[in-house]
Design a binder for these strands. Structure first.
Lengths: 226, 226
DNA sequence: AGGGCATATAATATAAATATAACATATGAA
DNA sequence: TTCATATGTTATATTTATATTATATGCCCT
């Protein structure tokens, strides 16, 4: 699922860091468009083809408040103000005009991202995106799916769990004992070979991606990342 | 329209100022209930009768983060954290657990009120009125009707409820336990197979659309939609 | 290079989860 | 009440995952 985002912001640097951060963090799940002036902003907003708008207030031409007010006459697209204005009255005015949230500069990209995801989830009934990536492998714990080179592969529950542990600890060696404790519990008294077997199946199922799982002699397994 | 609000907060003064402000500002449009400890909070949340929860983090007993996590397993009720913890990592953790917004003490009552109203508008709009779509399936929660390829299909009430949960959480895997808590309540002590049975009937009733309901082995069910 | 231990592999057996169907009970409308 | 529909239970079939074992291969150290 790709989300269409409109960033109405005259500061080129801010546009750039948002694009970079969102693109990387989401694994290209955002299609980001820009408007550099208020006039361009209102025009693009009215096209009504975006899933969410990030709106600066002080802009060349029409200001962000006005854009929000006009937009709310014809649409209830999610709107987050992102602005240097800290005063409470500005925030309240923003909410009064029907925005969904408000973040002040300088802001944390991680926080902005979290706000966007929370709002998208609420407005679209859509999923927050916490896809993990390692090389050609992608894992979505929310949907319990795995992709290698963007092609879905089916994994058994234990294989999925093993891969998830490896991806949560990219580069780190995980011992067989550690896998067993995490997945079978302390009281498991079976054969340690069981881990090998599942790793083998996991590698096979991952195809090319399986090569990223490295055996570390006498230590365990790790997920190699570049 | 009266909104039912739950305030989970151990500080009596804060509970009081919130109540006074919200009651006056909204002309008694809020029916406000309280929980003074984490344990009371989680119990009341699970009753599933509120429109929104304001959640303090540091509480006697179970903490707010835990309440949020548990709650999100069975509900997507709007949650706003309201806490003295300012750190970015706390905020991000809150969003990670699925909260909708976050406000730090000391906070402006007007701003909290604005956030609550914005969120209620968003969540009510979505759940109550909008037709949900997933592939060839359309569900109108307001009219309680379901269409597959624009042809209406008749569903039993439980089948409808199951489909609605799946569509509200498109893509997300929902466990049998989660279905049971949502639909039968946490004190249900019958057989888990009951979910399978209703899913089976639901799939059959949906015909072609039934194929979108995927079994995730050892995890539950999800609605597949790309 | 070769012995000894570690790991990979494959085949098989076991166990577990899920689908299904038939039945029993409850609920609600006519 | 009676009928129809919805729901819950249970037993069984089917599918799938998992564990065990035996054997082959590979790695590392002297």
């Amino acid at each position: 699922m790709v989300f269409k985002l409109l960033v109405v912001e005259d500061d080129a640097e801010i546009r750039e860091i948002i694009t970079d951060y969102f693109t990387e963090k989401s694994n290209q799940a955002f299609d980001i468009d820009f408007a550099k002036t208020g006039d361009e902003g209102i025009e693009k907003c009215m096209a009504k083809e975006y899933d969410l708008v990030l709106l600066d207030i002080m802009l060349p031409g029409i200001d962000g408040f006005t854009i929000c007010r006009e937009l709310r006459k014809v649409s209830n697209i999610p709107i987050i103000f992102i602005t240097a204005r800290h005063s409470e009255s500005d925030k309240l005015y923003g909410y009064h005009l029907g925005c969904d949230d408000y973040i002040t500069k300088p802001f944390s990209l991680a926080e902005l991202y979290a706000k966007v995801m929370a709002l998208l989830k609420r407005s679209k009934g859509m999923v927050r995106n916490e896809i993990m990536t390692a090389g050609c492998i992608k894992l979505d714990p929310y949907r319990c799916t795995v992709f290698v080179n963007d092609k879905e592969v089916a994994l058994a529950p234990l294989e999925f769990a093993i891969l998830k542990i490896l991806m949560e600890n990219r580069g780190k060696v995980i011992s067989r004992e550690s896998f067993i404790i995490r997945l079978w519990g302390y009281d498991f008294d079976g054969n340690e070979r069981v881990v090998d077997n599942h790793v083998k199946k996991l590698r096979k199922a991952l195809g090319e991606g399986g090569k990223l799982i490295k055996t570390v002699f006498k230590k365990g397994y790790k997920l190699e990342v570049e």
